[in-house]
Simulated scan of single mutants.
Amino acid sequence: MYWIEFLTIAGVHLLAVASPGPDFAVVVKHSVQYGRRAAIITSIGVGFAILLHVIYSLLGLGLMLKTSPIVFQIFIYAAAGYLFYLGWTSVRSKAPKKQGQNSEMVKQPNISDSKAFGIGFLTNGLNPKATLFFLTLFVGIVSIETPNEIKALYGLYLAVATGVWFCTLSFFLSTSKVRNLITSKGYWFDRFMGAVLILLAIELVIPV
């Protein structure tokens, strides 16, 4: 009896997760800058953050956050500040130094698993649009009569589906052909994604 409700949620989520946003920008950035492992771990962090949205939506905290303008505004500024920080560090990316007379680039920078996971988790967890999205799902689409156990299963699906989507994206972007295509000018791509993150931060504070 819950299949129609589930398919509606899955369809709306598919459209949302496929749309470019902070999660997409960060995963793409890590795929290019750090490689497949870091991007996949970042994607897992994004997926786990979905559970955070699900939990506070089920507990009613998300609705309280939305109905308290001051608290919600603080939350928006915190999210914008974090996205701006990520974007600024990317915009400042420098061209890799060459070794001697040859054109071989220095070793690609690394990022720890915990940091990659944390960036993915915070990028999604601090996204006010994700907050509004899950409030729309659990308040506007999911029936009030749907048991919390079923809602929890919906949330688990959303978390897994999000993680799988971005892991797939990470895998594709980190294939040898794609990476070889952009490696030589990867720092320009990093700067571009940084600019995207900065624009997303500005759009949070000054909606268009």
Rank of each mutant, 00 (worst) to 15 (best):
G120K: 00
A116L: 09
D113H: 09
L51H: 10
E104S: 12
P20S: 06
T131A: 14
N110I: 03
L153K: 05
A10R: 00
V178E: 10
L63G: 15
A201H: 02
D23M: 14
S143Y: 05
F171N: 10
S68H: 10
K129R: 10
W165S: 01
V28D: 00
Y157P: 04
R36A: 06
Y157Q: 08
G81N: 07
K94G: 05
S114D: 04
L61Q: 11
L199C: 13
L204P: 00
E203M: 11
G62N: 12
Y56N: 05
F192V: 14
I198K: 06
I40G: 01
L173V: 13
F189I: 15
F72N: 09
L204H: 00
T8D: 04
V26P: 00
G118I: 05
Y2V: 10
G155D: 05
M193D: 01
V26R: 06
A201Q: 08
W3I: 12
I141Q: 00
G120N: 04
L169K: 03
V54G: 01
G21Y: 09
W88Q: 04
S68D: 12
S176L: 12
V28A: 14
K151N: 07
S43Y: 03
L158I: 08
L65V: 05
F138C: 08
G11T: 12
V32S: 07
R37V: 15
N102W: 07
R92D: 07
V139M: 14
I9E: 00
I44G: 01
P109W: 04
S114A: 06
S176R: 15
L173M: 13
R36P: 06
I182S: 02
S143H: 10
V28R: 01
G155F: 08
R191D: 04
V46H: 03
I41K: 09
I74K: 06
S90C: 15
L132F: 12
L51T: 11
G62R: 01
P109V: 06
L158D: 02
P96T: 11
A80W: 03
V205I: 14
G125I: 03
I40R: 07
I9W: 02
S114K: 12
K115Y: 07
W3Y: 11
L65D: 03
T168R: 11
G47K: 01
V205W: 02
S90D: 12
L59F: 13
E104W: 09
F6G: 07
P96N: 13
S184A: 13
V32A: 14
S174D: 01
P147Y: 11
I111S: 06
A116H: 05
L158C: 04
T146S: 07
